[in-house]
Design a protein around this nucleic acid. Sequence first.
DNA 1: TTGAAAGCGCTAACAC
DNA 2: GTGTTAGCGCTTTCAA
Lengths: 377, 377
Amino acid sequence: MARGAGRGGSSGAPRSVDVAQLAGVSQKTVSRVFNNEPYVSADVRRRVLEAAAELGYRLNNAARALASGRTRHIGVVTLGTALYGPASLIMGVERAVRDTGYALRVVNTVEGDPAGIGGAVDSLLDQGVDGIVISEPIDDGQDGVLADRLDVPVLVLGAPPFPAPRALAAGVGADLMAQTATEHLLDLGHQTVHHLAGPQQWYSARDRMEGWRSVLIEKSRAVPPVIEGDWSAASGYAAGRELAAVDDMTAVFAANDDMAIGLVRALTEAGLRVPEDVSVVGFDDIPVAAYVTPPLTTVRQPFDVVAQEGIKRLVHTIENPQADPLPASEPPVDLVVRASTAPPPLQTPRGRGRRTTSRPSGDRHGQSLDGGSSAHD
Amino acid sequence: MARGAGRGGSSGAPRSVDVAQLAGVSQKTVSRVFNNEPYVSADVRRRVLEAAAELGYRLNNAARALASGRTRHIGVVTLGTALYGPASLIMGVERAVRDTGYALRVVNTVEGDPAGIGGAVDSLLDQGVDGIVISEPIDDGQDGVLADRLDVPVLVLGAPPFPAPRALAAGVGADLMAQTATEHLLDLGHQTVHHLAGPQQWYSARDRMEGWRSVLIEKSRAVPPVIEGDWSAASGYAAGRELAAVDDMTAVFAANDDMAIGLVRALTEAGLRVPEDVSVVGFDDIPVAAYVTPPLTTVRQPFDVVAQEGIKRLVHTIENPQADPLPASEPPVDLVVRASTAPPPLQTPRGRGRRTTSRPSGDRHGQSLDGGSSAHD
DNA sequence: TTGAAAGCGCTAACAC
DNA sequence: GTGTTAGCGCTTTCAA
């Protein structure tokens, strides 16, 4: 064949032999230098590097992978949505992966594809990866099937431990964050808190719901029926219309900010003021959360931290197959209190404390400038 | 049968020779089958496929790439933000790439990294890719440097043609969309339209600005000074405080929805009503745009269409190096009219049609305007 | 329509 | 510290 086709212009890209020749060393020595192996004299190393630079040499990864059996690639399975949470997580994963010197291979699960996550994992395995990250998985009932084929370590972000030989889990702090959000509302004096949940196939949606529920139960509060949305503002809006009709509803914890925003709009349109009549807490802290009306109290997810630690543990497992996996740490909880939460209205029956107004609701104090105060600062 | 069958184990995955042996054909024939080459009898093909299935054979991509010089990978350079626009574009790209049978390699440009896009492209080239997608590039002054190293086809999304030997551009309809947004405002009766631009290193920000400007000039309207934001709601908020002080400011076109939302909040806090006093148009149609207060009139970007067509053209160029590149089509313009735009207020000087509120921000221009026109309140 | 031989550019053992 | 010798699993001639 034509030699390293696709690379250099005419006669092919330079190979390590070429570098070796120019530097006056053996090809293996060039390999040593480029793999940072020990036992190379400083002088030789320098000469090799110079020769490589002069030739514009780049290591051929296909050959490297073939010879070593390791691709130095990590594959990530995503849901293929531009939702803030998943997208942020991917960005965090990319950064973390790159820091470790691995390359990232991305595959979306096609919506409505029966193969689902299994299909995506398969295609990753086909391409060849040393490890796999599954981000915010949904439960498509294929856990068992998957486990069989997974002969590489897997990191599952935002889900409980996974039935695979070498599986890690990370970012399972959603329940804790949900608890904090719920407690914040109770601390303000609300009798109980309603929950606008995410789609229940999502582990992260279930986690948040469990966190919410556990607090209510622990504090012996009534547990209102859960309303399930689909993460979208539209579904939050629909939920808001339902909730507006519920008596004594004074606080809602929404499983993400988009739904919270739709919810607030529906409540406002129904004549309920946020936060005077109803308090709302979101989840994610999306960029606009501080600037909607009213600025949204929400829980910020530490995507970067979670991704970074997760990848670090994954790479450790890849490179030390025998060793014990690194332990996971609890991600920090960051409740950002803004203007969408307040004490509940006085004990009058609904329809009463409420003001009629033509203004956009919750046009309140100056907090809006910096977007609110974080529990962590 | 000596090897392979188990595959999970340590002794290695089945190779094409194993399949060949089991099927009773030569290894080359197996290769032919898996590459869909002609000249394989239906019978042999079937036998090979059966043997492969039995062994759980998967083609080794490293070996394939090494031997063929083609990686069947497309690399994408992104900005590493979870901004809705870029994130959506990436998702579209992933989908499109997968449809073509290529794999996706993703690299972010590290923020603040002096190497910028150039560094990201380099690392992609290092990894080995058959083509590169640069999404929403920013101008880091490295065009020239880049061009030298780019020996594979490049698709630039959301930017003008790029100085590289085999470059394609796509999604350059932003100016047209910006024009539509601006015209919408003028059609409503506004004398002119202010512009809250994105960071000017972004080509897409410049495109939108040019679209806006061209309409104003064409219709002989005053061209107000541009305010530059950083895409964030926070910067939109800051811009809003400035704009609230400007006389006769009745319409603003913001270069994205996040900024538009921050802007609306600042205007509202300053006592200006949207859309009664000031109309605002955003850009992107982010998921919450329909649910903020007021629901945002905005321009929807057809990310999927742009990504799909772009990738199709890129792959064509990869696979037909000599042929002319496929032509680009104009993406559709989709103005979504909601409640943030309306005809301008009646012709009274500012300070007058407007309600006084209790907000302190009125202080800023309270003396010169409000004080003098008390008759109106 | 099929097969045999010869690498692709690198890493892995083991010598020196 | 450095070099030698074999492959990794596939695609590519070229021959049959």
